[in-house]
């Protein structure tokens, strides 16, 4: 294994470890910090991929990840929470220990899934880590009971998908990357608009208050 391949495995492993920790964190501040570090590791992964492929544009992608996911989204998410007066304490349907156990099970599923699904040249552990991050992101989406938790769950899942893309393709075409970052930014803006409105309407960002539309 080359040093760059080893570095990529370490970065992806670190990203999964952070996702695992995030699955049971119940404080907004620590969740956002973990997401920040996870995104920084994603940027390092993109730089490593740039060295492998010699594609200069991957350095720009890494720069955009730092700008959008390490700085902009975490900072403005915390700011939105502070301005709207949302609680720092987040809510979940399950206890932290249960969530950690489920996340560990998902890691096993990811390891098996990566082996069985893809007879490809990409590094097995990086692929398994990306699957794991996507699955833990989905776990956060379904287990959280507040808008911030669900929103961060989505971003974690998105980091996992991005890792998968980097591991598999060593970067998609640049124009496409720019477009997907634009969509991500628009998604983030909508999240902050809705958390603000929920705080105004219900004095809470709990999604338990959003359960009136049933059949």
């Amino acid at each position: 294994m080359t040093p760059i391949a080893t570095a990529m495995t370490v970065f992806a492993g670190g990203m999964f470890f952070l996702a695992f920790l995030m699955s049971s964190r119940m404080r907004l501040g620590s969740l956002v910090t973990a997401f920040r570090v996870q995104s920084a590791l994603l940027a390092l992964l993109a730089i490593a991929a740039a060295f492998v492929t010699g594609e200069f544009q991957l350095f720009i992608v890494a720069g955009l990840i730092v700008l959008i996911k390490v700085w902009f989204i975490p900072s403005f998410l915390l700011r939105a929470a502070r301005v709207s007066g949302a609680s720092e304490r987040l809510q979940s349907y399950a206890r932290p220990a249960t969530l950690s156990f489920v996340a560990a099970c998902l890691a096993i599923v990811a390891l098996i899934g990566a082996r069985g699904l893809l007879p490809v040249g990409a590094d097995y552990f990086v692929l398994a880590a990306s699957f794991g991050i996507v699955l833990v992101g989905l776990l956060m989406l379904v287990s959280r009971k507040d808008m911030f938790g669900e929103g961060i769950g989505f971003f974690v899942m998105e980091n996992g998908i991005f890792t998968f893309g980097l591991a598999l393709t060593h970067g998609m075409p640049f124009l496409f990357e720019i477009g997907s970052f634009f969509d991500l930014l628009a998604f983030f803006i909508l999240i902050t608009v809705f958390t603000h409105r929920a705080q105004d309407e219900n004095a809470s960002v709990a999604t338990d208050d959003l359960r009136t539309l049933t059949d």
Partner: peptide, 18 residues
């Protein structure tokens, strides 16, 4: 109900498309 519908729409569809 508008906020609830929009939130569900945003999260589910964006997750699906992702």
């Amino acid at each position: 109900g508008s906020l609830e519908a929009a939130w569900k729409y945003l999260i589910l569809c964006s997750t699906g498309i992702s």
